[in-house]
Nucleic acid binder design. Structure first.
Length: 961
RNA sequence: GCGGGGGUAGCCCAGCCCGGUCAAAGGCGUAGGAUUUAGGCUCCUAUCACUUAGGUGUUCGUGGGUUCAAAUCCCACCUCCCGCACCA
């Protein structure tokens, strides 16, 4: 008989639903446990990978319920954001890639796709799809509290959040360079570009060198080297322009002019200048006032920076090489007779441990660079830049900046130059061209007056650190990542101008960005049920309303008077919030550690009092599919609902949970799922065989039953310990595999009648099924019912190990038997003989005495052991065997761990003859082999090969024939 | 560059914090056997090498070190993966 998964899943889903089993209300008599998992963004159906975090959370919820907690596990949907918008657009354009994903991977019929013509419809479609999947997976969610982040009431809640942040001084405003698609009019991130290339925004300092009525504008990444400028490089073959901006005239290459477009004064004329005409002219270093000349160089690229380069030959390999090239090129020298080459000696500015002086010269010679067009110059530049950036120090020539590290000097010089009006910043895409998905080349745009949440505030960081220190992080290894994230987080743009979401309450041009409107929503779960049931209108959900309910400010009377919401409802909302908050456990994948989870910590610490800060965060790794990352392009995505349909929810749950320990990436495999299916089937069939057996009285247990009961208690203990640490793999390991191995051994050893066995097994499985219930809820409900129970197993108590049932003696005895069997197998394997008779020799008493004596010694010395044994008159007749025996014993004891030692000591001498007596029937029934037991000092011993002298306590000697 | 995580027998995955029970759990796969009309399921046995007596040898990315003892502690190196934002 095999399990019909869809039948039992449907049956139990319906029962749970009808009995509102997972709906959780305030119950002052019961301790609550409130846990949430990052809500899904509905732009695709869930796949197996998504299932991991949700399943883990559900397993935990079910476990906590069995421990007696009033568990609240809610769910909502995150509609906020831009990807759905982009998706709508691509769908409208019949984007073939997206259409194929929808049809072939997600299996959405064309007729349905046609209807998905606006963002909300797409979100709603996947919302339903995902929700259905969660139900089918058996997640024990209180669906009454479900909401979406574009519900008007939720928006009021987010408005409240931002008012709190703003009044608390956590919001700032500023300008920020972003990668920008001029066609879409949107910032672009990695996910918006062809080939998923992140625009690498570099910051140039542009330095203005006076030149007649205008400024020659050179862009540099190394403003600190301004002390070493010897000349300016101009490419004679390119065109430059003079443009008017900021009340100045700038000279830049015409190819770079567009970068200043937004600064150029309207209607101003531009004057073209050939590069060649500039060569040989003079200007001066605006900072040091040294007179310098404009020289020709071919390496200058009209598109990089401004098409002008300030030359620092000591520290820039290109500059050094270009000067070498120029001064040895006689035709050039004669072409520009005005150029004074005596003025071009490199000027050192920075020293490093590796180079004494003019490092550019040395590195050029080390790499055997031939001329300024040599491609090795790129590496040379990078190497020297990195070296000086990390270990360089400014030397005396740098005046006030002398002795500063290059890192410090770079910032300081830059700021000072800008302050003096000599320089300004220019942002540029360093890895250009970066192409937007729409096909347009991206540029840099200053995003003006952007709103930020200022995660850089030192006192806020401190609060976040302390919140982390006060909460439990599971697994604890992840703690350092949180602290690091808190440290390097800074202003985070919190609003954008497109996408679904809530408008910024004080500036309706902006929509609150999706990572910022999802940081305290756990609190909203405690309200959403009542808000929906009483159909509270969003217009009444004022700041005052949330102030009272979430912070206890004001009074319910006043709020009621001002909002038209009855006082009772307001009181209920406050009660509900106070009952469930703080959040006891937050779950998500580890990819959210550097963003969402840390924002979540920050925002709670900003808005809520300390007693409402989160209590625990649980982080899990991702899911690989047969060793590979799951992705559409690999075609290895398995939609969750389809998997449930094919394999059943419980086998999938077990497969995901057992594949890896919490933080590791889990390698999901369908083979594993299939093997779980078989194991559950086996268990199911067995339970049907034993279901009507009579009750078992554990106090009557003896022999191998006692052993299995003892093992079961240990298993409960280990499983409980690992569940508390959410080491679910270990838990399942115990429940499924290790208990199975014990059960198999039990089956070989038991001598009970089938009837008695069945009642014993019934007891065993009732406990085992409870342990399994959080993982495989449908299966366990079904088998629990089969075993004659009426209530849901969800409401059963989690098993507690019964120390009275732990029996060290039977465990040690069973170890003796197993070891002896193993030894016999070993001998059989090596000798390859077909044995008819097994002779087992139990060690003599004196051996046990020495053994126990040796175990008691804290510091065991072989010499002492031998001597004291030899001197003991009781052993005088065995003298000749003592040294050899002690030697072997000593070796054995020196590698035995202390817990085994004390275990044996606590039990004392085993009656090995009686224990091993069982082997007679064991071998008789299995292979029809005769087993004879002898004590070593038995006078009638049969020992043709004289093996009995090798016997040791816990290790009888063996002879086969 | 900054931050984090890995490298264990054919594969997956524990063990490492807290050294000894570690030739290293468990699963998957494979082979042989039992059961079966057959297949599947199930059960038993084996699965680093050598070995006709329960043994020995060499293994936990590489190389050193500490220790009576190292997969585990320390140092160096090689190598793979992930994150670095205005995007969920």
């Amino acid at each position: 008989m095999t399990i019909n998964w869809s039948d039992i899943e449907h049956k139990w889903r319906t029962k749970w639903e009808n009995s509102s089993l997972h709906n959780t209300n305030v119950d002052p008599d019961k301790p609550k446990f409130f846990l949430t998992v990052a809500y899904p963004y509905p732009n695709s159906p869930q796949h197996i990978g998504h299932g991991r975090t949700y399943t883990l959370t559900d397993v935990y919820a079910r476990y906590k319920r069995m421990l007696g907690f009033n568990v609240l596990f809610p769910m909502a949907f995150h509609y906020t954001g831009t990807p759905i918008l982009a998706m709508t657009k691509r769908l409208a354009e019949n984007d073939p890639e997206l259409l194929s994903a929808f049809q072939d991977v997600y299996n959405i019929p064309m007729s349905v796709i046609k209807q998905l013509d606006e963002p909300k419809k797409i979100a709603q479609y996947f919302h339903d799809e995902i929700k259905q999947g969660m139900i089918e997976m058996g997640y024990s969610i209180d669906w009454r509290r479900e909401f979406t982040t574009i519900d008007t009431q939720y928006s009021k809640f987010i408005e409240w959040q931002f008012k709190k942040l703003n009044s608390g001084g956590f919001i700032t405003r500023g300008s920020h360079p972003v990668g920008w698609c001029p066609k879409d009019g949107n910032p672009v991130g990695q996910h918006d570009t062809l080939g998923d290339i992140e625009p690498d925004i570099g910051e140039y300092t542009i330095i203005k060198f006076a030149f007649d009525d205008a400024k020659l504008v050179a862009a540099t990444l190394r403003p600190e080297t301004i002390f070493g400028v010897t000349n300016i490089w101009i490419n004679p073959d390119i065109e430059y322009v003079k443009i008017s901006l900021n009340n100045e005239k700038w000279i830049v290459s015409s190819d770079s002019m567009f970068k200043f477009e937004h600064l150029i004064e309207e209607n101003s004329s531009t004057e073209a200048i050939s590069g060649n005409s500039l060569i040989g002219k003079w200007t001066e270093n605006p900072f040091t006032h040294m007179k310098i000349q404009l020289l020709p160089a071919t390496f200058v690229n009209s598109k990089n920076g401004t098409g002008l380069v300030m030359s620092v030959p000591s520290h820039a390999p290109y500059d050094y090489q270009a000067i070498v090239d120029f001064t040895r090129d006689h035709s050039l020298l004669s072409k520009y007779p005005d150029i004074d080459t005596t003025n071009l000696a490199p000027i050192d500015v920075i020293k490093t441990p590796r180079y004494d002086n003019t490092p550019a010269k040395q590195i050029v010679s080390d790499l055997s660079i031939k001329n300024q067009d040599d491609s090795k110059l790129v590496d040379a530049t990078k190497e020297l830049y990195t070296l000086e950036f990390n270990s360089g120090k400014m030397i005396d020539i740098a005046g006030d900046y002398a002795n500063l590290s290059v890192k410090q000097a770079k910032e300081k010089v830059k700021i000072d130059l800008i302050q003096l009006g000599i320089a300004s910043k220019l942002y540029e895409i360093m890895n250009s061209p970066v192409i937007c998905r729409c096909g347009t080349e991206c540029i840099i745009k200053m995003f003006e007056n952007q709103w930020f949440i200022d995660y850089g505030k030192p006192d806020w960081k401190e609060k976040a650190h302390s919140s982390i220190n006060d909460m439990s992080l599971v697994p604890s290894e992840i703690t350092v990542e949180f602290h690091n994230t808190v440290d390097w987080l800074h202003e985070k743009a919190c609003a954008r101008n497109s996408g679904l979401g809530t408008k910024l309450p004080w500036d309706s041009d902006w929509i609150i960005e999706s990572l910022s409107d999802s940081v305290i929503y756990m609190a909203y779960y405690t309200l959403s049920r009542l808000i929906k049931e009483h159909t509270l209108d969003s217009s009444n959900l004022s700041e005052e309303f949330f102030d009272y309910i979430l912070l206890g400010l004001g009074s319910s009377e006043l709020v009621s008077a001002n909002t038209n919401i009855s006082k009772n409802i307001i009181d209920d909302l406050r009660t509900e919030f106070l009952y469930f908050y703080p959040l006891d456990s937050r779950h998500s994948g580890r990819d959210l550690v550097p963003n969402h989870l840390t924002f979540f910590i920050f925002n709670h610490s900003a808005i809520f009092p300390k007693n409402h800060w989160p209590q625990q965060i649980v982080v899990n790794g991702s899911v690989l599919m047969d060793g590979k990352k799951m992705s559409k392009s690999f075609g290895n995505i398995i939609p969750l609902r389809q998997a449930v349909k094919t394999y059943g929810a419980d086998p999938i749950r077990l497969g995901i949970m057992s594949a890896a320990e919490l933080l590791q990436d889990a390698d999901f495999s369908l083979e594993l799922v299939k093997s779980f299916t078989e194991r559950l089937n086996k268990m199911h069939n067995l339970i049907h065989e034993i279901k009507s057996a009579s009750d078992y009285d554990v106090t009557q247990a003896h022999s191998i039953e006692k052993w299995l009961l003892s093992r079961l208690q240990r298993s409960i203990q280990i499983t409980t310990d690992s569940m508390n640490k959410l080491r679910v793999r270990e838990s399942l390991h115990n429940i499924i595999y290790l208990l199975d191995i014990d059960l198999q051994w039990y089956n070989r050893r038991t001598t009970l009648s089938t009837e008695d066995q069945n009642s014993f097994l019934k007891y065993f499985f009732e406990t085992r099924i409870k342990l399994l219930a959080p993982f495989a809820p449908h299966f366990c409900e079904e088998t629990w019912e089969t075993l004659g129970h009426e209530g849901s197993i969800t409401l059963e108590d989690w098993p507690i190990p019964d120390t009275n049932l732990i029996d060290e003696n039977s465990e040690l005895s069973e170890d003796l038997i197993k070891n002896t069997v193993e030894d016999i197998n070993n001998i059989l394997k090596v000798t390859k003989i077909q044995t008819q008779r097994i002779c087992i020799y139990i060690p003599a008493n004196w051996k046990w005495n020495i053994f126990l004596h040796a175990l008691k010694q804290e510091q065991l010395l072989l010499k002492d052991l031998i001597e004291s044994s030899l001197n003991n008159p009781d052993y005088s007749e065995f003298k000749k065997h003592i040294p050899k025996f002690c030697q072997v014993l000593f070796k054995e004891l020196s590698t035995m761990d202390s817990s085994s030692k004390s275990r044996i000591l606590s039990i004392g001498k085993l009656n090995e003859t009686q224990i091993l007596e069982d082997l007679k029937s064991f071998y008789k029934t299995q292979n029809n082999i005769q087993v004879d037991l002898y004590s070593e000092d038995d006078s009638k011993i049969y020992d043709p090969r004289n093996r009995s002298i090798y016997s040791r306590p816990m290790r009888p000697a063996i002879f086969l024939e």
